[in-house]
């Protein structure tokens, strides 16, 4: 049987089934399961061929139909059976009729005069007035949640930058650098900081170096851009002792 069906006309498997039963002029209380199942599967097959993404519900209904069909093929025993002596189609029929009821109700709803389609009201209240009206608004949970999310999405996320004060002092590193340079040789800055690998220590060492240059205690030179910096003590060991290298002198707080 070659059916061609506008598949998007059907809102679901019950809708499709109802349609098939009607076009076959079957009695809803005596659905011919073999025929209906076959036709239903044909339609589902068509959906596959059309590459439509078949909703799981259509497949579930297909399984239900096959199940009912198979139960009906079983010989009916004459002996009074246990509890479940119901027609295997009964639940399906109930669902179909119930569904049809609401399908009709949906049509009745659609036929009612609808606001902004058939019926209009004057809407001329300026928004400022409407807003200032001290009316209590009744809101559902959904509207509240929606409003909340709208507000949330408008508020930029706060970015916190945590600042931890490192207990490093330039003065301390000035002394350390001086101690390293005490031998009077040229020292590479890179080598110097290798002992203190953290970024903070690197910075403090660099600052210490600059301080020492400013104080004319150390001379530096750099051969190439980005090349290593070489440090050398400018003064004799004895003179160094006379210089105050205490914390306060550098003003880093």
């Amino acid at each position: 049987m070659a059916f061609e069906i506008h598949l998007d006309n059907f809102t679901g498997p019950l809708d499709l089934l109802l349609h098939l039963i009607k076009t076959n002029e079957m009695d809803i209380y005596d659905i011919q399961m073999v025929e209906i199942t076959e036709q239903y599967l044909t339609v589902v097959e068509q959906m596959k061929q059309l590459d439509l993404e078949i909703a799981g519900e259509f497949l579930l209904m297909a399984a239900t139909l096959i199940h009912i069909k198979s139960r009906m093929l079983l010989p009916v025993s004459d002996e009074p059976v246990e509890e479940e002596d119901e027609d295997p189609r009964a639940e399906l029929v109930r669902r179909l009729l119930e569904y049809q009821r609401y399908k009709q109700a949906a049509e009745a709803l659609e036929a009612l005069p609808q606001l902004e389609r058939d019926v209009f009201v004057s809407r001329f209240v300026p928004t400022e007035i409407a807003d200032s009206a001290d009316e209590t608004v009744s809101l559902g949970v959904f509207q509240l949640a929606e409003a909340y999310y709208r507000i949330l999405s408008e508020v930029p996320a706060e970015v916190f930058h945590e600042v931890i004060r490192e207990p490093l002092s330039v003065a301390q590193y000035v002394q350390l650098v001086v101690r390293q340079l005490a031998d009077g040789q040229r020292h590479s800055f890179r080598r110097l900081v290798a002992a203190w690998p953290s970024r903070a220590e690197l910075v403090v060492t660099f600052l210490a170096m600059l301080e020492l240059v400013k104080m004319r205690l150390v001379e530096i030179d750099q051969v190439a851009d980005y090349g290593d910096i070489w440090l050398k003590l400018r003064v004799a060991q004895g003179e160094l002792a006379a210089v105050d290298l205490a914390e306060d002198g550098f003003g880093y707080g």
């Binding site: 809102t11 679901g12 498997p13 019950l14 809708d15 519900e57 669902r95 119930e98 569904y99 609401y102």
Partner: peptide, 8 residues
């Protein structure tokens, strides 16, 4: 609702 309509 889904049981009645037979669809998601």
């Amino acid at each position: 609702v889904e049981y009645l309509r037979g669809v998601d």
